[in-house]
Design a protein around this nucleic acid. Structure first.
Lengths: 189, 189
DNA sequence: CAAAACACGTGATCC
DNA sequence: TGGATCACGTGTTTT
């Protein structure tokens, strides 16, 4: 039931002029509040609260203005609603079961965004590297730096390799990766 | 200047007790507002507004409460601030020159999020396909039969490999081919 | 009860 | 002018 659709928002048909005896408490601290909290079903549970919403309107003028104000509050309500809808849409997209504050959610979203961009860049770089590798391939084996790979056959069906490199920092790991990428059954490291 | 750091927040040193003659308008519609609008530099531009913030404090008790309220408002302010920070972080991550409403921004973030996830699964699928293709490649050496490849590290930058195969006809040649395809500098065979 | 999170109405401000 | 967006203080609910 969480984050669902409006679900009969503005329930009780006639919503206006609740005729509250307000005599004093002139334009008191904007009384109205009453709202169901998270999980967005345009927060507000049916009951008495709908009335509470429109309290405040009687004598004549609470403050300087009265005309455009009521329209303003509605507009603001719509804005809030839209924003929360977006929040929910994002919650739906997030993997972790959505028990997040809006703040944390935003953080996650930003993280995902940069991750997405970084991924793009990475893939492009990879493609570029592939190009380069393809260009350099036909020459077969070229000994850049002082890298050496000695292969000595042992019997008919066994080979002993000795890889010696200077510059590479994680040469072993890269060798393993390369071998694995060949789908060679590596038994032991 | 947009979305920057606090930049001397709470500027004017002494900020309290603006001594507003408030006699009437007891706890009027929470007067205080005054804020620089978007682009978040903890919204509020230096000037007179800083004072406006702390208006309302005089006689003694505006309403029933006075104690925990002032703490509450501060907490809420911090919450808002944090949230807006997140919003800015997200704006920074977004490519389009960042002239977006919070709502649109959220939408974009959600879109990016799902894109990111979709990219992940896509890449995984691609990898799986690559594995399969590599396995099916006829030149390759795959682990059917009793083929084994033992790798033993010698020092930090040297590796000794031992390839044992049964069925292959020209195992050594194919090994060399495979290694060559990796663009590894092979010195001796 | 206190702290945190949310929703609401309202005053500004910009276009 | 008026609609759209924002920040703010406060009341309410959740933990």
């Amino acid at each position: 039931m969480s984050c669902g659709v409006p679900e009969q928002w503005l329930v009780g048909g006639d919503v206006k002029e609740v005729d509250t005896e307000w005599a004093a408490a002139v334009l008191g601290s904007h009384s109205a509040s009453a709202a169901g909290r998270r999980d967005h079903q345009p927060p507000l549970q049916a009951g008495a609260t709908v009335a509470e919403r429109v309290v405040r309107k009687r004598g004549r003028k609470p403050g300087p203005r009265s005309g455009p104000t009521i329209s303003h509050v509605e507009a603001e309500r719509q804005r809030r609603e839209k924003l929360n809808r977006r929040f929910c849409d994002l919650r739906a997209a997030v993997p972790t079961v959505s028990r997040m504050d809006k703040a944390s959610l935003l953080a996650a979203a930003a993280a995902a965004y940069i991750a997405e961009l970084r991924g793009r860049v990475e893939q492009l770089e990879v493609e570029a590297k592939a190009k380069q590798a393809a260009a350099a391939k036909q020459g077969g084996i070229h000994l850049q730096d002082n890298n050496k790979l000695e292969v000595r056959m042992v019997g008919r069906d066994a080979a002993a390799l000795r890889l010696t490199t200077t510059a590479s920092r994680h040469a072993p790991a890269r060798l393993m990766g390369a071998l694995r990428s060949l789908d060679l059954p590596v038994q032991h490291a």
